[in-house]
Computed example of a mutant assay.
Amino acid sequence: MSPTAKLVYMANQIARNLEVAGPGDAARQTAAHIVAFWDPRMKDMILRHLDAGGEGLSDIARAAIAEVRAGADA
């Protein structure tokens, strides 16, 4: 599994574990987890993956990574 595929898997897994909160809250909580616990290289790689189309990301994970992007651009 490539490093990017591993990050997609991890983001989807986090999102899946939090989806009981509902899509909006799950995306916010997933984004908060990524910001708090992923190192800058991991965040950069998943942001580049999202920019390239985000193949394989669940809807919640995609929304979470977009929130991470918005925070990084702020």
Rank of each mutant, 00 (worst) to 15 (best):
Y9V: 00
A74K: 13
E55L: 04
V68W: 12
P23I: 00
P40G: 05
A27D: 03
I14Q: 02
K43H: 03
A70R: 13
M1I: 09
D44L: 11
I60Y: 05
P3F: 07
D25V: 14
G54R: 06
I65M: 08
S2R: 02
A61N: 00
G54N: 10
G53N: 12
A11F: 02
G56P: 12
A15N: 04
L18K: 09
V68A: 15
D59W: 04
G53V: 06
I14G: 01
L47W: 05
Q13L: 07
A26C: 02
L57Y: 03
V8A: 00
T30D: 10
A72V: 13
G53E: 10
N17R: 05
A31G: 08
S2A: 09
R69Y: 05
A27V: 09
L57N: 06
I60H: 09
A26I: 00
A72L: 10
D51K: 10
M45Y: 03
S2F: 06
M1D: 04
E67H: 08
P40L: 07
A15D: 06
G53K: 10
E67N: 12
G22M: 02
F37M: 15
M10V: 05
Y9Q: 08
N17K: 03
G71I: 04
Q29P: 01
I46V: 14
I14M: 05
R62D: 13
G71M: 12
A66P: 07
I60K: 08
A32Y: 08
L47I: 05
L50N: 00
G54S: 14
H49F: 09
F37W: 14
D51F: 03
T4Q: 01
W38G: 12
A66S: 15
Q29W: 00
G24W: 01
Y9D: 11
A15H: 03
A64Y: 12
G24K: 01
A52H: 14
G22R: 05
D39C: 02
E55P: 01
M10P: 01
R62Q: 04
D59L: 11
G56Q: 13
V20N: 04
A63M: 12
R48C: 06
A36L: 15
